[in-house]
Design a protein around this nucleic acid. Sequence first.
DNA 1: ATGGGTTTAGAATGATAGTTCTAGAATATG
DNA 2: CATATTCTAGAACTATCATTCTAAACCCAT
Lengths: 205, 205
Amino acid sequence: MGQAKFSQTDFLAAAQAIAAAEGPAAATIASITARLGAPTGSFYHRFASRNVVLGELWLRAVRDFQEGIGAALDAGDGLAAALHTPAWVRGHLDNARLLLMYDRKDFVQGEWPEELRERVAEMTRRMEAGSRQRARAIFGEDGREEVRLAQFLISEVPVAAVRQHLVRREPPPPLVDRLIRTTYRAVVADYRARKRKPGLAERAV
Amino acid sequence: MGQAKFSQTDFLAAAQAIAAAEGPAAATIASITARLGAPTGSFYHRFASRNVVLGELWLRAVRDFQEGIGAALDAGDGLAAALHTPAWVRGHLDNARLLLMYDRKDFVQGEWPEELRERVAEMTRRMEAGSRQRARAIFGEDGREEVRLAQFLISEVPVAAVRQHLVRREPPPPLVDRLIRTTYRAVVADYRARKRKPGLAERAV
DNA sequence: ATGGGTTTAGAATGATAGTTCTAGAATATG
DNA sequence: CATATTCTAGAACTATCATTCTAAACCCAT
């Protein structure tokens, strides 16, 4: 057997570094191998395609991100789950930029490579289960409306509040947490009020 | 003079249609000219580069979008400005998708073409002035914090609430308006409460 | 009618990237 | 020590695009 100067991990790390610094599009085979001083041949000994490497980066970032939210929800606390986003972003600026500033399509062009299909499917399943879990944790039900509200509170609002800071490569200030918290409480309160007196709440809107 | 089978407007319309249907990246010179049955040469008689056409599309979408917000604010109503986003999206699904689902860099690669620089600069100026105007309209001041909150209420939250519906090419349901409204009122109320009794509000967080 | 512009028409060019190929070097195993 | 296997090395190939170029068609003003 040969000597293995360049490992899978080396290529992944190089790709991650380049993607974090200049965006996933900049992680070309040429730039990845150049950073390691490796020949392109070595790259293709480790990976079937560029899609595999960039898909792997994306999957890792998503998994890292989701884990914390899941943990917060297992504790039954929706607000903690909502506040997980700014907290995670502060501790993982690079991965956060990858995940929240770019689209999945900036990583994987066309179809997912066969090697990753199963993991993506698993991830999707987990996320769908998670969205109902979130609705139950916050509202006690997981009907269509509750799921939609939970997505707003736990995903949409926190991500939106954090984005401009990611663009500037700065940690989100405490004000961001306050906005998320205020929004969370208001939407939950509004939901409960509407449940209690649908007619009144309707008119009040 | 020749006969002019293909006008600037034709090319722009074709590019718009393709970009709206399949994303700006799909609006290549080949796809634009193919849609019209025009030769590539004719395209370059009308435009200096692809960047000019796609930059033009982006500028038009931004302008359309901003106009309504500006009008709402001139009436001094921050909530109306916040609710402009879902309303505009319902009436301009195609432009909304272009503007809210893609990044500026998906339209213009590298530098802006000289022909559009002035208009982009003007647009930037207008948006910066607008952000202070929004802060004043809502909070009566335009300090750093007020500007940040206004951006959250008028831009970040509405856009976030609307995005998943754009992806599905469906008009945002009324629930989206309710979320925006609830958030708006809560954040403004929280701001005012904090202004009145800073100590108390601080502890309450 | 014709000269000269504009426009059509599409082939040629050049750049960038992903992927494949051929050759040679290194090494663990028999 | 021989050799099969893996890996390095980088050139070659292929595809996709934006852009430029050459030639011919067209039509208005003279």
